[in-house]
Structure formats: C-alpha cells, structure tokens
Nucleic acid binder design. Structure first.
Length: 315
RNA sequence: ACCCCGGCCUGGGGU
C-alpha cells in the first residue's frame, strides 16, 4: 500500500491525475487495498486542481468500500472549496467537522485562510477568537495567514497589531510572518517600514530567505529605488549565500525593463538560463513586455516563438 | 507486553 501510495502521490504532484487513477484501479485489482492515506492523496490532488466534484466522487467511492474518511480528508475538501472561493460550502463542512469529530489546527487554519483570501477579514478574525475559546492554540501559521490577509486588504496597521498580539501570546514570528508583513508594507507604499522589519528580523536571529529578498527587491524597484534594488539583489547571494530563483530573476528583469534598461534585462535573462535557472512563462512575458514597451517588436516576436516552442503561452 | 521507524492536509514573492 505504501509503495502504491507513494507512486500515486508522485503522479498527483505532477498533475498526472489520469495515470494516478489508473494506478488506483490497478492496485485494487492486485488485491492491494487502498487505505485512507491513499484516498486522501487523490482527493487532495483533485481539490488543489480545483476539481472538488471529482474529489467528492472519490470520497463517495472510499465510503462505499468501507474506508472511513478522517480529518485530513475533510481538511483537503475544505481547502478545495476555499481555493474556489466557495466559502459557504467550506464553512458548512467546517461546522460539521467541528461539531462531530476532532478538528485539528489545520482545520482552523484552512478555514481562516479561506476567509483571508476572500477578503472576509472580520469572519477570519472571528474564527481566531472562536478557536481560543475551544482551547485550540493558534500557531505561527494561523497568525501568518491573518497577517497576510490584513495586508491584502490594505490594513497593514492591523497586521502589525496582530504581530504584537502573537508575541504577547508567546509565539515568535518566523520568516513567513515577516515576509507577509514586509510584502504588505511594500504594497501599501511603506517600503522603509519594510526595510526596518527586515533589519528587525535579522537582529532577532532569523535568516531571511530568497522569498523575503525577492519581496524587497520588487518593492524597491516599484518605489523607483534602482540602486537599492540592485544592492539587495547582490546581497542575497553575497551576504546569505542564497541563489536567486526564477521569480527573483523575473523581478529584476521586470524592474530593469521598466527603467528602460531592456538590453541589460535581456543579458540577465540569458544569464539566468546559463546559471541553470530555467525561465518560465512569466519570465518570458516580462521580457517580451519590456521589448514591446521599448518599440522592439522584432525581438519580442523571436521570444514569443521561443516561448511557444517551449510549451508556454504568451499573455 | 512496551517503545521507536515508511506514505496524506494549512501561511509569504514576479507578467
């Protein structure tokens, strides 16, 4: 069962759902009985692909075969509804789970994340208070989710207050919590607050990761602070020994293009490839827009052909 | 008998 489940998991993460389903059939034929883990893997994959109806079909199938769903099954389904912004369906499931069997911290975090991504911050906050009443202790993920949620609706001040509340409860913000807040500061035009938080985070002994650096490089470019954006990009490798990833490069390429430095952007685009970081659809779109803005449609056409040849579609 | 060991679910960045 474990071997089959691992194989199915591999196929699912590669979005090869057809083959995963075939394997699920094959194992039954070979008298290897799929257990709740196996079904959970498939259900979660369908949910992440936005196919909750298919996930429900598997859910029914497992029940018919006498395999009982567990909390992870329900968590995946809830998350599936949340990802489609069908929050009321998610909430129904949430309510029946909290009434019946044991919810887990994941159950709360998923539902809170659903509200946050849907901009329904009051309901998200309510759930935070709700869980404390039921002796569930919010964790770093809970707070980071809410910090991100407040930032997305422009309520950076509330996000900062939440960070304090979190500390007051004895929880330390991690690199994701800081990343969310720094990103929110950049979006709302408080880049210097973001930089101060970056310093604070390093002072507290946390090592910034490539995501935090990318957020700041992007924020600095968008604030028109070219020199500092370039410095931040260099420091990521020089100070921390980190490697820029495809998104960091895209941010740099986009910044250079928007500052009229299309040739340098193009050099960086090729440097990224040479250093083994393969451009994705977004990187192509960024550089193509750069060429189009600077009246170089011929280069743009070449790149569009190249990206289509690689299986990406231009936007 | 007891303990340990394998597979499932949640948070931040680019057009």
């Amino acid at each position: 069962v474990v071997s089959y489940s691992c194989l199915i998991h591999g196929l699912c993460t590669a979005s090869r759902m057809r083959e995963a389903m075939l394997l699920l059939d094959e194992m039954s034929e070979r008298n290897v009985i799929p257990d709740v883990f196996t079904y959970n893997i498939v259900i979660d994959a369908f949910c992440k692909d936005g196919m909750v109806a298919e996930a429900q079909t598997i859910f029914k199938m497992m029940s018919q075969r006498g395999v009982h769903p567990n909390i992870v099954t329900y968590n995946s389904l809830m998350d599936g509804y949340c990802l489609r912004n069908e929050l009321d369906k998610a909430r129904k499931l949430f309510d029946s789970v909290t009434m019946g069997c044991q919810p887990s911290i994941y159950t709360y975090n998923i539902m809170i994340n659903g509200y946050c991504k849907g901009g329904r911050m009051d309901e998200a906050k309510q759930l935070l208070d709700n869980m404390s009443k039921k002796d569930f202790v919010p964790d770093t993920v809970t707070y980071s989710t809410l910090v991100d949620g407040f930032c997305r609706v422009g309520r950076v001040k509330d996000a900062q207050l939440l960070l304090e509340k979190m500390r007051y409860q004895g929880l330390l913000p991690d690199v994701v919590t800081y990343g969310s807040l720094i990103s929110g500061c950049c979006e709302s035009g408080y880049i210097d607050t973001g930089l101060a938080l970056f310093q604070e985070m390093k002072d507290s002994g946390l090592k910034p990761d490539v995501v935090v650096y990318s957020i700041l490089v992007d924020g600095l470019w968008k604030a028109g602070r070219e020199r500092e954006a370039r410095d931040m990009f260099s420091r990521l490798s020089e100070d921390e020994g980190l490697r820029p990833d495809v998104r960091t490069y895209s941010i740099m390429i986009d910044g250079l293009c928007r500052h009229g430095l299309v040739d340098e952007a193009y050099d960086l685009f090729r440097t990224m490839e040479r250093s083994g970081c393969m451009p994705d659809g977004c990187s192509y779109n960024v550089i193509i827009h750069g060429f189009l803005r600077h009246k170089d449609p011929l280069e743009a056409v070449d790149l569009i052909q190249e990206m289509v040849f690689k299986g990406f579609s231009a936007d």
